[in-house]
Amino acid sequence: MKITDFLIIFFILYVPTLFYIEAKAENTQTFVELNQKHENSMTVAAQDAVNVLRTNVIPKLEVGYDSYKINPVDPQPAIDTFLQTLALNYQVNDSVTVDMMSRYIPVFAVVDYDGLLLNVYQKYTNEDREQELDRVWLPKIPFSYNDDEGNIINFTIDEDIEVYDVQLNEWFEGKRSELVQEVTVPLLNNETDFEQIRKRTIVDTLQENIAFYINEHNVYTKYLDVTYQFMMPLIAEEDWYNTVDDVSILAFFQGYPYQMADQVYHEYAFVGTRLHKKESIVAGMVDGQKRFWYESCNYPYVADEKYPNKKSAAAAGYSELSCLNP
C-alpha cells in the first residue's frame, strides 16, 4: 500500500474525530460561560432585591424589635425587584416571558428577623371563589425550638427571643441575658449552648421548609407548562449558617432552558445575600453636599465620619444617599 493510501485512510478516520473533539471543547466552553452568566445574573438580582429590603427593614430595627413586630417588613417589593433585574439580565422585556421565568423559581425565601418568609406557587380560592394557581406568600414560619421539658423558644437573628416557660405557664419576651433571671428554661443559662441551638434551629427551619416547597413545586409543573424535575440542591453547611445572623434572601432558579443545538441547558443557582443590618453609616461631602450612606453601597466618595444609625447622621446635618438611587 502506498504512503498516499495511508494518508487518505488517516484523514478519513481521524480528521472527523478531531473536528468532533474541537466542537465538544467549544460546547464545553460555551456551557461554562453560560453558567457564569447564569450565576452572575442571580447574584445581581438578589443584591438588588436586598437593597429594596434595606430601605424599609433597617429603620424599623433601629427603632427596636417592638416597633418591628408592629410594622414588619413587606417582602413583595423584594421579589418584584428580583424578577425585574433577572429579566433585564436575560434581556427579557415582555410580561409573558417574565411570567415564564418566574415558574422556574420554585422558592424565593426571606430570612426575616423573627422567622422565614417563603414565596411559592400555591392553589387558592380567589375572590370569585374559583381555584387559581399563582405565587403567594406563606404565613411566616417562626424559628421555634421545643426542649425536652416542654419549654418553647422562638428565636430571632440576634438575642431577642420569645419564651414559654412550661413550669410558670407564662410567655416572656426580651433578650436572653435579661430573661435568664426570670424563667426556669435551662437553655438560657449557657450563652454558648444558646447560640448553638439558635443557629441550628434557624438552619433546620430553612432546610426543612425550603426542601419541602421545592419538592411540592413539582406538583404544579404540569399546570405551569414546565417539564423540569425540581429538587433541593446540595448546599454546603457553611452557606446555610451564613444566613442566621442577618436578614437574608435565598433564591432558587432551576431548570431554565437555554437552547443550544440539540441540547438544553439546565442548571440551578443558590444565592444568599445578607442585609448587614448592623453595618455603620458613613458620611462625607458629595458634590458639595453633606450626605450619608451605608458602607456596603461601595461608593467611591471619601467618608469623613461614621455613625451607628441614620438618626445620628441626620442629626449631624447629613442627608441620605440611597444605594438604589445615587
Rank of each mutant, 00 (worst) to 15 (best):
2 K>I: 00
4 T>V: 02
5 D>V: 01
5 D>L: 13
7 L>F: 15
8 I>G: 07
10 F>V: 00
11 F>H: 03
13 L>N: 04
13 L>E: 03
18 L>I: 12
21 I>H: 04
22 E>Q: 10
23 A>Q: 07
24 K>G: 02
27 N>H: 09
28 T>V: 12
28 T>N: 04
29 Q>R: 03
30 T>H: 13
31 F>V: 13
34 L>W: 14
35 N>A: 10
42 M>K: 03
47 Q>K: 13
48 D>E: 11
48 D>N: 09
49 A>G: 09
50 V>H: 11
53 L>I: 05
56 N>K: 01
56 N>C: 07
57 V>P: 08
59 P>T: 00
62 E>G: 14
62 E>K: 11
64 G>F: 07
65 Y>P: 00
68 Y>R: 04
72 P>G: 05
75 P>M: 03
75 P>L: 03
77 P>F: 06
77 P>Q: 02
79 I>R: 02
80 D>T: 10
80 D>S: 02
82 F>Y: 15
84 Q>R: 01
87 A>M: 01
90 Y>Q: 07
93 N>A: 06
97 T>G: 02
99 D>Q: 01
100 M>F: 13
101 M>A: 03
101 M>P: 01
102 S>A: 15
109 A>D: 01
113 Y>G: 09
114 D>T: 05
115 G>V: 11
120 V>I: 09
120 V>Q: 08
120 V>E: 07
124 Y>W: 12
125 T>V: 06
127 E>D: 11
130 E>W: 02
130 E>Q: 12
131 Q>C: 05
134 D>G: 14
135 R>I: 02
137 W>H: 11
144 S>K: 03
144 S>H: 04
146 N>Y: 11
148 D>G: 12
148 D>C: 09
149 E>H: 10
150 G>C: 03
153 I>H: 04
155 F>D: 05
158 D>S: 14
161 I>T: 05
163 V>W: 06
165 D>N: 03
168 L>M: 13
170 E>Y: 10
173 E>H: 08
175 K>F: 13
176 R>V: 15
177 S>Q: 09
177 S>K: 06
179 L>W: 06
179 L>R: 02
182 E>K: 13
183 V>A: 13
190 N>L: 05
190 N>V: 06
190 N>G: 10
191 E>S: 14
199 K>H: 10
203 V>L: 09
203 V>P: 02
206 L>C: 08
207 Q>A: 09
207 Q>D: 04
207 Q>M: 10
208 E>M: 08
209 N>Y: 10
210 I>G: 07
211 A>W: 07
216 E>P: 10
217 H>F: 15
224 L>I: 00
225 D>F: 12
225 D>P: 00
227 T>Q: 09
230 F>I: 10
232 M>G: 04
235 I>Q: 04
238 E>R: 08
239 D>S: 11
246 D>W: 14
246 D>K: 08
249 I>T: 02
256 Y>T: 13
257 P>Y: 06
259 Q>C: 01
259 Q>Y: 11
260 M>H: 12
260 M>D: 04
261 A>D: 07
263 Q>C: 04
266 H>A: 08
267 E>P: 00
269 A>C: 08
271 V>A: 15
281 I>A: 11
289 Q>K: 08
289 Q>G: 06
292 F>M: 04
298 N>V: 13
300 P>F: 15
301 Y>Q: 02
301 Y>P: 03
303 A>T: 07
306 K>R: 04
307 Y>E: 08
309 N>D: 13
310 K>A: 14
314 A>E: 06
315 A>W: 00
315 A>T: 00
317 G>E: 04
317 G>V: 09
318 Y>L: 05
323 C>N: 05
